[in-house]
């Protein structure tokens, strides 16, 4: 292991980490937004849209991100939709994540007891108020562990971005190995930088899950 090499490579990896995080977080937020909209469409049984959402969720849960990205990045320009690589990355991640998030949120909504809604209505709340103030907050609590697991999954999936020529961590490692053949140093840095990115989220998930379980069952 050559420390000098590692010192030289550090800034390259740091830049790649920032790029990965930027695209990754946009993707995660997009995924949450899409997931929420889809979960609500299914919850309120909106005709037509419901069928579309189901088709979308089925399609994106059953295909790999790599294939989705290839389609968005290489195939869509052929029908006149041209997007930047970074945008494609976030969009692909958002669409994949949206499908997973909608399932997580949907099952969160389903685990809120029926009596909660009935009680809210008997207190004179309308359907919107019951959802906004009673059902939704509880559903989110139920969904948090699943959402965080999805976030970790999505951040890990960012490792395929290098295929659409985004200079992420994977790209940097592969590039440096190809040029200077310092395989051991490059791979060590790769592992360390992925840990920097994923460990905090993983720990947060662990802590929150404990807290929520505590909140659910009370003191």
């Amino acid at each position: 292991m050559d420390m000098e090499i590692i010192r030289q490579y550090l800034p390259l990896y740091r830049d790649a980490l920032f790029l990965t995080l930027r695209i990754g977080w946009y993707g995660v937020f997009l995924a949450l937004a899409i997931g929420l909209v889809c979960a609500m469409i299914i919850r309120f049984r909106i005709p037509v849209l419901r069928t579309i959402v189901k088709a979308y969720v089925g399609l994106f849960r059953n295909t790999p991100l790599l294939v989705q990205l290839f389609f968005i990045y290489f195939a869509l320009p052929k029908i006149g939709i041209r997007l930047s690589a970074e945008f494609c990355g976030s969009l692909g991640l958002g669409l994949l994540g949206g499908a997973y998030m909608s399932e997580t949120l949907r099952s969160g909504l389903e685990s809120v007891a029926k009596i909660q809604e009935e009680s809210a209505e008997s207190l004179g709340m309308n359907r919107y108020q019951a959802f906004r103030f009673v059902i939704f907050p509880q559903a989110v609590t139920y969904s948090v562990p699943g959402i965080l697991a999805n976030v970790i999954f999505l951040l890990k999936e960012t490792s395929v971005f290098s295929t659409i020529s985004l200079m992420d961590l994977m790209f940097t490692a592969k590039d440096l190995i190809g040029m200077y053949a310092k395989t051991l140093e490059c791979l060590t840095l790769l592992v360390i930088f992925y840990l920097i990115m994923l460990l905090p989220v993983s720990l947060l998930g662990y802590v929150l899950e404990r807290r929520l379980r505590h909140a659910e069952f009370g003191d």
Binding site: E157, T158, M170, Y194
Partner: peptide, 19 residues
């Protein structure tokens, strides 16, 4: 669980063969 499968693939395919 915490490592992307791609990283594991690189470690085994490029890393272990080299080391």
């Amino acid at each position: 669980r915490i490592m992307p499968q791609m990283v594991l693939l690189f470690i085994v395919y490029f890393g272990t063969t080299r080391v």
